[in-house]
Design a protein around this nucleic acid. Structure first.
Lengths: 201, 201
DNA sequence: GTCTATAATTTGATAGAC
DNA sequence: GTCTATCAAATTATAGAC
């Protein structure tokens, strides 16, 4: 069994994903974590805001790790993109459309209401974008275009989560994946030196 | 001055856009609308949930109308797509990243917690998708591909709002627009009968 | 009918017993 | 140090005065 602090973080991440920041009460958190109420303020003296910041960072790092694992397992960048979207669509179906992006809902909730948490989500997105950009450049995409593609990749995933959860259908996520894959494939094909890793920098 | 009911709906839409469903209290709504507290329950006996459903529907219809206006004003579908994203990016900048999609935040908040409101967001997204699909088909995109493109278009806009608001930068929205425009242009170019409106049905 | 005052519950947060 | 009992404030919702 993990430490109390870790259980609280895990439980909060799960609740944020399902019902967001404002929709999650600290009582729910402690019940879900199997921890007494006081231990929350022992581990997180800053209360809900501090807990949320830690959860955003932890969830962001975990999701980035997942991205890296999928990218490593795929034979090429285009396949990796498809795998990522299809994997997200599958998980959505299997979890009754609950297991989506761990920070998307929170990001929108806090964007104009809590600058500390907004910055935490900004850092997470920047981290994901950087990971995607590195992979795309390694696949032969021109630097400037790799930035663009990474942005539309992450945006389409987040929007795919939104539409798929609202419609309770994996199709939006799958369709977004097909189209983004098409974009990446076109960019790699149009690159000066295609599929030549290491030529970037 | 509009009726009390209309002022309440407008004020709620504005607050939902900024801070979401759970982050908005009914007291805030009545203060913003300049209406006494009791008139809220007079106009919306179902309380917060009923009000939210009405606001989701109204905001969705207004946003769809905006889409139609932009599409009508543009010389062609590819330009319309670019205008829509660029317009959204510009409005974000001008409104300190507050004036984004009126239902995106709410859609994520209620997706797994309130089925009535989830269905309301589902209907709105379906309406937008239909509007986009009709335009894309009229521009010469093959029916099946038009559905895909409409999905990635809406998903990229929603994701663009999320990333741009989190980073307080118009670039994610602009980048998403560039790439979606590229997709639409490619699909129109690849269509059997390009730019022949009315060939559909 | 329009609106003020209040009820019942839940929230984030704390104090103090073990 | 760990946890229970409680606080003050805010929330949705309602009752009843004008």
């Amino acid at each position: 069994m993990a430490t109390t602090r870790e259980r609280i973080i895990t439980a909060t991440a799960e609740l944020f994903r399902r019902q967001g920041y404002n929709g999650t009460s600290l009582k729910q958190v402690t019940v879900a974590a199997g921890a007494p109420f006081g231990s929350l303020y022992h581990g997180f003296p800053g209360g809900k805001e501090e807990l949320a910041e830690v959860v955003i960072e932890a969830s962001g790092a975990a999701y980035r790790e997942l991205f890296e694992v999928i990218a490593d397992a795929a034979p090429d960048a285009v396949t990796a993109v498809g795998d990522f979207f299809d994997g997200a669509a599958l998980v959505l179906e299997e979890t009754d459309y609950v297991d989506a992006c761990p920070i998307g809902t929170v990001a929108l909730e806090v964007a104009s209401t809590n600058d500390r948490l907004r910055r935490a989500t900004e850092r997470v997105f920047a981290s994901w974008l950087e990971a995607a950009t590195v992979r795309l450049r390694a696949a032969g995409v021109a630097p400037g275009e790799a930035d663009d593609l990474a942005l539309v990749l992450v945006a389409a995933i987040e929007g795919g989560f939104m539409l798929s959860r609202a419609a309770r259908s994996p199709e939006p996520m799958r369709a977004a994946g097909r189209q983004v894959r098409r974009l990446v494939a076109a960019s790699i094909a149009a690159a000066p030196v295609a599929a030549a890793p290491g030529t970037g920098t």
